[in-house]
């Protein structure tokens, strides 16, 4: 029973093992970045940037079909252009960063859909939008795992300035010149993880595995380290359950994974001990030192 439900799909089918590995790589790389996005109140920035990647990937597709390298490069370039572009617009015009980001990503999204659908079929469009986690080849897996490793490594390097940039940016600026570099490196990490996620889950769903576990983890953990651990665990659980659901009930796997994460988020919202709905309505016990 347990074997059939939980283990057989992975034991019997290579594509399920590949899908799981791909999802774990994306989860491990993206969730820490998602935690910082959430703590910096930039969750919607991540959303906007994930849409912004689409035209880049689409141009890559236009040039060389469903090619891993071309679409990755295109996505990375488009993501960086939008991240820098919105920062530029916010700095040199009266428009705030959120508005300029929204404008840029709407343009990008429309452009991306247009490019893919003029040149390719609807199937291709669905691939780009919702990913192909069940059809990951060796090269894609290597890419996903390398991006996740690189992302963790860079995050470890910029960890201290990044925490300070979030908690007390003015202090960081007063003691060091790393503030701008830290912010830019962090944006690069966001783009990189979104591009990796896009191969597995598609441009529309990639940001889900970044933000939803982080938002759910906020209801369970207090410190940054525990937040990251909890978010990664939730992302792993969502990937595993989502893949199994999609296997047993023939559901599209990307949306299934994100929906499981959504269910965990909703449960956390109510039952989480750190500021969840129930914890907040119960009489509070205070422990003062």
């Amino acid at each position: 029973m347990i074997w059939d439900l939980f283990l057989a799909p992975f034991a019997d089918f290579g594509f399920m093992r590949r899908a799981l590995l791909g999802c774990v790589a994306v989860a491990v790389g993206a969730t820490p970045v998602g935690v910082f996005l959430m703590l910096r109140r930039m969750s919607l920035t991540g959303d906007a940037m994930s849409h912004a990647i689409l035209p880049g990937a689409a141009i890559g597709y236009l040039v060389s079909g469903l090619s891993l390298g071309a679409m990755t490069l295109g996505g990375l370039i488009a993501g960086m252009v939008v991240a820098l572009g919105s920062g530029f617009v916010a700095r040199f015009t009266t428009l705030r960063e959120d508005a300029s980001l929204a404008a840029l990503y709407l343009i990008s999204l429309a452009l991306g859909v247009l490019i893919v659908s003029t040149r390719g079929s609807n199937v291709d469009l669905m691939h780009v939008l919702f990913g192909t986690v069940l059809a990951l080849d060796d090269a894609s897996l290597v890419l996903l795992c390398s991006f996740a490793s690189l992302s963790l490594l860079v995050l470890a390097l910029i960890y201290r300035p990044l925490v300070l940039e979030c908690a007390d940016p003015q202090f960081l600026r007063s003691v060091s010149k790393l503030s701008a570099a830290t912010h830019f490196t962090f944006l690069m990490l966001v783009v990189m993880n979104l591009v990796a996620g896009f191969h597995a889950l598609g441009t529309l769903m990639a940001v889900g595995i970044m933000i939803l576990p982080a938002a759910a983890a906020r209801f369970w953990a207090g410190g940054i380290g525990t937040l990251i651990a909890a978010a990664a665990a939730i992302a792993f659980l969502s990937s595993l359950s989502g893949l199994l659901l999609s296997f047993h009930y023939s559901l599209p796997s990307g949306p299934a994974i994100i929906l499981v994460a959504g269910v965990i988020y909703t449960l956390s919202l109510f039952f989480g001990p750190e500021g969840g709905v129930i914890a907040q309505t119960l009489p509070r016990r205070r422990f003062e030192t």
Binding site: V163, C166, A167, D168, G222, G223, I224
Partner: peptide, 13 residues
């Protein structure tokens, strides 16, 4: 100017 909702301990700050 400090984000007091950020989960950092007194020691770390």
């Amino acid at each position: 100017e400090i984000d007091r909702s950020f989960p950092i301990s007194v020691l770390d700050l």
